[in-house]
Design a protein around this nucleic acid. Sequence first.
DNA 1: AAAACTCGGATAATCTCTATCCGTGTTTAT
DNA 2: ATAAACACGGATAGAGATTATCCGAGTTTT
Lengths: 196, 196
Amino acid sequence: MRAITQTDIVCVMAHLTASVEYGLHCLLWLAGSAVPLSSRDLAEFQGISPSFVAKIFPKLEKAGIVGASEGVHGGYLLTKEPGDISVLDVVDAIEGQKPLFDCQEIRGRCAVFGERPPGWATTGTCAIHAVMLRAEKAMRDSLASQTLADVAGVLDRKAPADFSNDVRDWLDGRVKSRARKPVGRELSSQPGIDEP
Amino acid sequence: MRAITQTDIVCVMAHLTASVEYGLHCLLWLAGSAVPLSSRDLAEFQGISPSFVAKIFPKLEKAGIVGASEGVHGGYLLTKEPGDISVLDVVDAIEGQKPLFDCQEIRGRCAVFGERPPGWATTGTCAIHAVMLRAEKAMRDSLASQTLADVAGVLDRKAPADFSNDVRDWLDGRVKSRARKPVGRELSSQPGIDEP
DNA sequence: AAAACTCGGATAATCTCTATCCGTGTTTAT
DNA sequence: ATAAACACGGATAGAGATTATCCGAGTTTT
């Protein structure tokens, strides 16, 4: 059985993208960590692309969700309580308030208008656009009502008691192994994650 | 001033696509028509691509929203009352229930699991996926709550009294002009709509 | 001084959406 | 009967976005 690589993932181009998924998963692990975790730690821990995760975190930092510390023992930490970070905050930080619908103002091109459409046809919001804006607001309200703490709570109730210990051990070992001479054999215990 | 052509439209790749926008605009005009309108009638009336509109209508027909009649005076008619067609019906007919979010099951790739993740980690719905599904349901509920009749009502209140007469005249003239020898000069009274 | 980190830019591959064209079969008007 | 117009489906090309990777510059800790 071969390890799953990034090239196995197919693009589906949904509105809420894989970037958001990666970011949320990383933030969940960050919510339970007292020490800074680097983007590479988080990526290899979850078996996802380190270079791609590294592109996501600067966006989260600009949005004030995480803070970065540089240097050998640097990494990211949450800057707010998990209960104060909504899923919508993360989505907007990564996708930049991407609209659900892009109105092309077809209403003004009606053939009976000729060259220039009358004012009543182009003022205000297009009736179809208004429907989409209401749907978008419903979606955003739902995303805003759930916080990272809510999602983390669901995970905690599913996982057995010793799982969080295993996770902390793995991440702590990862952090402690920095700034040492590479051990070679030990680091390759997670094969096939980074190379195609 | 140059007429707007199809190549002027830029792709933005929102979740609710231009296909849905075109379809809804066409259905609104269809809601006010007693005679069948062809996809080309509807496209040229609105200054949008006839061949692209022609690809949308078979989907609407399969969904039971419109019915087609073939032949020289053929075209499409609504098969239901506008009040019985929700915007969600149209969106699903054209986009095929495209999901808002595509979960890639990252939870099962955690490094502490090794080759095979334990059952508790992969059963049920991923907690992050569940958040997105709730948001998607909120969006779909909103779209389902609005019908074509609602949208058409907004338009009717904005347009002046003689607008619907102008529209009917244009479309009727269009339908009547079928199956006649091409007049040449008369048909080119809407220039620059079809050719780049 | 060396090592590890963050950060930003540049680049390639892949996918979806948009748009167009062509051929087949059917119905209606001349 | 013949021609015109229609619906329908398949094949094809271009544009844009997302995903993924690599490299160099600057910073901090050991």
